[in-house]
C-alpha cells in the first residue's frame, strides 16, 4: 500500500498530456521484427579492417559510459573506475578518455572528485533504478539529489508497468517531470527493452521518451536480460531518425548491457553510421553503457598495434 503522506502522493491535477488526450491521437509506426533483425544482421556483417578498425575502437572508447551499478560498489571501486575512464590504458596517450562513468547517486560525489579536471562526465542512475517502482515524488527527489551531488547526466528508468498497461500518459508525465528535475543535467531515458516484449512497444516507448524531453534514449538497466541487442537498438535509432526528420532535433542513443566485445561495439557503430549518419558519431549523441567492453577493446587495439593476440590477464580489470 502506498503511504498517504502528502510528500509521496502524486499530483491530482491531470497533466497536459492527459487533458488533451494526446495518446489517443498519437500512434507510432509499427516495426516488422523479421526485417528489422535482418537489417541489423546485415549491418553486423560489415568488415572492418586495419585503420578503420582502430579508428572505430578508439571512437568506441570515447563513447563509453563506464558503468558500475552493483550493491557491493565502494568508494575504492568507483575511484578505480574513474581512473580507468580518464586514462583507459596507462602508457598509451593516443587513447581518448571514456565519455562518462555511470554510478549510483551515492557515488556521484566520489566520482565527481576523482574526475576533476578531466572531460569525463558523471552519469548517475536515478528514479528508483532499476525498477522505477517508487512514487514519483521520491523518484524526482532521487534525481534532484543526484544533480545536486554533481551528476552531469541522469539515467532514469521508465515505468514499464505503465507502458505495458497502456498508461502512456503516465510514462510521458514521469519523463517530463524528471526532465524538469534534471535542471542542467542531461537526461537519458532507460526503456528496459527486455521487459517490453515487442519492437512495437519499444518504438512507442522511444517516441514517448523523445516527445517528453529525453536527450538520450537508452535500452537497458543491465539488470534484465536481454539487455541491448543490435535490432532493438536499430528500432530506437529509427525513432530518433524519424524525430530528426520531423523536427531537425538530434536525440542520442545508448545501448547498455550486453555489449561486451570490441567486435560488437564496431557493429553498433556501423549501425549508427549507416542509420543516422556522421552527425551521430560522437559521444554527444551515442554512448555505450558497459563495463567489460573496455578491456576487450583495449586488447583488440593492442593486437592491431603489436600484431599479437593478447591475453586478458595483461589488462587491469578495473
Amino acid at each position: 500500500m502506498q503511504s498517504k503522506s502528502p510528500a509521496v502522493v502524486e499530483p491530482v491535477e491531470p497533466s497536459p498530456a492527459r487533458r488533451i488526450g494526446l495518446f489517443s491521437l498519437f500512434s507510432s509506426p509499427t516495426v516488422d521484427a523479421v526485417a528489422l533483425e535482418e537489417r541489423a544482421a546485415n549491418l553486423a556483417k560489415r568488415s572492418l579492417k586495419k585503420e578503420a578498425k582502430v579508428a572505430g575502437l578508439k571512437l568506441a572508447i570515447s563513447m563509453m559510459d563506464l558503468t558500475t551499478l552493483e550493491g557491493k560498489d565502494t568508494v575504492g571501486k568507483v575511484e578505480q573506475l574513474c581512473r580507468k575512464a580518464r586514462r583507459p590504458m596507462e602508457g598509451d596517450g593516443t587513447l581518448p578518455s571514456c565519455a562518462a562513468i555511470c554510478v549510483y547517486p551515492n557515488f556521484v560525489t566520489t566520482a565527481k572528485k576523482a574526475l576533476e579536471g578531466s572531460t569525463v562526465k558523471v552519469a548517475s542512475v536515478a528514479t528508483a533504478f532499476p525498477s522505477g517502482l517508487s512514487p514519483l515524488p521520491i523518484k524526482l527527489e532521487d534525481v534532484r539529489r543526484a544533480v545536486e551531488f554533481g551528476a552531469d547526466e541522469i539515467d532514469m528508468v521508465i515505468d514499464r508497468g505503465a507502458m505495458l498497461s497502456g498508461d502512456y500518459a503516465k510514462v510521458f508525465d514521469e519523463i517530463a517531470r524528471t526532465k524538469e528535475a534534471c535542471g542542467p543535467a542531461h537526461l537519458k531515458v532507460i526503456l528496459e527493452t527486455g521487459e517490453l516484449g515487442t519492437y512495437d512497444v519499444v518504438r512507442r516507448a522511444s517516441d514517448i521518451a523523445i516527445a517528453a524531453g529525453g536527450d538520450f534514449i537508452k535500452t537497458s538497466t543491465g539488470k534484465v536480460q536481454p539487455a541491448a541487442t543490435l535490432p532493438v537498438t536499430l528500432a530506437m535509432l529509427e525513432a530518433i531518425r524519424d524525430h530528426w526528420y520531423a523536427t531537425g532535433v538530434r536525440i542520442g542513443m545508448k545501448p547498455a548491457g550486453g555489449v561486451r566485445t570490441a567486435k560488437q561495439s564496431l557493429q553498433y557503430l556501423v549501425m549508427v553510421k549507416e542509420t543516422l549518419g556522421d552527425a551521430w558519431l560522437t559521444p554527444d549523441l551515442f554512448r555505450f553503457g558497459a563495463s567489460a567492453l573496455l578491456n576487450d577493446v583495449l586488447m583488440q587495439l593492442e593486437k592491431e598495434r603489436t600484431g599479437f593476440y593478447q591475453a586478458s590477464a595483461d589488462f587491469s580489470k578495473e
Binding site: R46, L48, K49, A52, R241, L269, K273, G277, D278
Partner: peptide, 13 residues
C-alpha cells in the same frame, strides 16, 4: 538529409 560522409571510413576489405 542525413550526412553519410567521412566521419569514419571503412578501409578496403
Amino acid at each position: 538529409a542525413l550526412q553519410f560522409g567521412n566521419a569514419w571510413n571503412y578501409a578496403p576489405s
